[in-house]
Design a protein around this nucleic acid. Structure first.
Length: 471
DNA sequence: TGAAATGTTGGGGCG
DNA sequence: ACGCCCCAACATTTC
């Protein structure tokens, strides 16, 4: 007797290796992998333009891998419950499996789909795979979620070590093929071709993720020294691959564990910990994607200023390191994490713009846009989140620039209009003599802007605004 | 995963 | 030789 196939509903787990749901399905018989484009289910957080570009190429890669493995991927657009029921009926499947997601809208989607499938007489099983630890698995002594990173990560260390990753399973196709659509019909690619910079920088898909992962041992050797240096390739750059599930955190974790037990390794593992912490927080405090965790910040006297926001978005603040960072984001869909902290601090504190508008800009422009990580990052920068930077921690863009881009190489790479300035000059063109500027072909206010705000004055203004908050 | 203001210390120039 | 001052370097506190 022929075994009925299992439908594998792909979501943010676009891989074959270390995929518990796929492995379980393949162990039981034929599999029918399905991806359904359903932005209407993402609440206010449908994937932004850069994420959609990535998703298109990642789905293309996944489709090729699954086809080569013998179980072609079916792409569809619509309501996941409707599509899954239809696919299951068409292939004679009685079972649907998928990897859990943890964002509020995704959990709601999962609940709705699972109960709808069950009501239709299908069996449903969900699997982990996108986190090292399930958000419910970590709680403090009184059973509450953690709101401070260090004890959270220590508690994770007391849990069983995440299991070693498993290889891609052998796949068997269903006897009956089922209709899908063409990838292009998902409409993920922009109409205007602006994605060249993304394509030059990234290789979406599981193979590209594996190539990045292969660099990890090298990165770890100098992680402590280079991780904060945007002018060096000091970080793993795995974030978009992790976001789309092209690799699992278990794979990264176990590969890092295979390296020497150094402070560098511990520091890198803690970065995985911050990702876990972000999911833990969004899971337990689902309102925080839109509203501050610390409610007193709802009264904060932001001063919305569309023009200032636009200059920040366009990388025209007049602070070279910030502008280089914002243009790196626009051109490559990614920004170094230290620079994310700096531009966020500047937008929220120097410019007094609400953190939500910065979070939204990142959401649209980052290829690694991840609701949990983005929310944590912005609330941290604004001082209104869990374990956040205290309100008085205001980065000085010039000091940070001298410290972390000492030769100005990063600025030079993204601000061609300042490229002729030397290491001592390039971070602060507003301080230079006219002759030095002229020699480098720079005209402040014309070829490059004067500072949008004076940092010292802006800092004082921010401190005053925060001090006036009722606490 | 800050920066600035303020305080302390100690070497060295100088009368 | 000694006290005085300056100030860099470092530490502490304050925002």
């Amino acid at each position: 007797m022929r075994v009925a196939p299992t439908v594998v509903w792909y979501r943010q787990d676009l891989r074959l290796q270390d995929h518990p749901a796929l492995t379980a399905a393949a162990g039981a018989g034929p599999v029918v992998p399905v991806y359904i484009w359903a932005p209407q289910d993402e609440g206010d957080w449908a994937p932004g333009a850069a994420s959609r570009w990535w998703l298109h190429h990642s789905l293309q890669a996944l489709g090729q891998s699954l086809a080569a493995a013998g179980a072609p991927l079916v792409w569809r657009v619509g309501d996941p419950l409707t599509e899954l029921r239809q696919v299951a009926a068409a292939v004679g499947a009685t079972r649907v499996v998928y990897t859990r997601r943890y964002e509020p809208a995704a959990r709601e989607q999962g609940r709705r789909v699972a109960s709808g499938l069950a009501a239709a007489g299908l069996s449903v099983a969900t699997y982990p795979g996108s986190l090292l630890h399930e958000p419910e698995a970590v709680a403090n002594r009184s059973g509450d979620p953690y709101t401070v990173f260090t004890p959270f990560w220590r508690a994770c260390g007391n849990l069983p070590v995440p299991a070693a990753p498993v290889a891609a399973p052998a796949l068997q196709a269903a006897a009956t093929a089922v209709e899908g659509c063409r990838l292009e019909e998902l409409g993920l690619l922009p109409r205007v071709a602006w994605t060249d910079g993304l394509a030059r920088t990234w290789e979406p898909g599981e193979a590209g993720a594996a190539r990045r992962l292969a660099r990890l041992a090298t990165v770890l050797q100098r992680y402590d020294a280079h991780r904060d240096r945007p002018d060096l390739e000091g970080t793993s750059r795995l974030s978009p691959h992790l976001h789309f599930g092209e690799i699992s955190p278990r794979q990264v974790y176990h590969l890092a564990l295979a390296a020497d037990a150094t402070p560098d390794r511990q520091r890198f593992l803690a970065e995985l910990g911050w990702r876990e912490f972000a999911y833990h927080l969004l899971y337990h405090y689902p309102h925080t994607a839109a509203a501050p965790l610390r409610r007193e910040f709802e009264q904060f006297p932001w001063q919305p200023d569309p023009e200032a926001l636009q200059r920040w978005q366009g990388g025209q603040t007049g602070y070279p390191l910030l502008d280089a960072a914002l243009r790196q984001l626009w051109q490559t869909g990614w920004m170094h994490n230290r620079l994310r902290m700096l531009v966020a601090s500047f937008l929220v504190k120097d410019l007094l713009q609400p953190w939500q508008v910065g979070a939204r800009w990142f959401w649209d422009t980052l290829v690694d846009a991840d609701l949990a990580c983005n929310t944590l990052g912005w609330q941290w920068a604004a001082g209104c989140g869990a374990d956040a930077a205290p309100y008085f921690r205001i980065f000085n863009p010039l000091l940070q620039a001298r410290k972390f881009d000492p030769a100005g190489d990063f600025v030079r790479a993204f601000l061609p209009e300042l490229a002729q300035l030397g290491p001592a000059d390039i971070q602060a063109p507003w301080q230079l003599d006219a002759a030095v500027l002229a020699a480098a072909g720079v005209t402040l206010g014309a070829t490059y802007p004067a500072p949008l705000v004076d940092h010292a004055a802006a800092r004082a203004r921010a401190l005053a605004a925060f001090a006036a908050l009722p606490r």
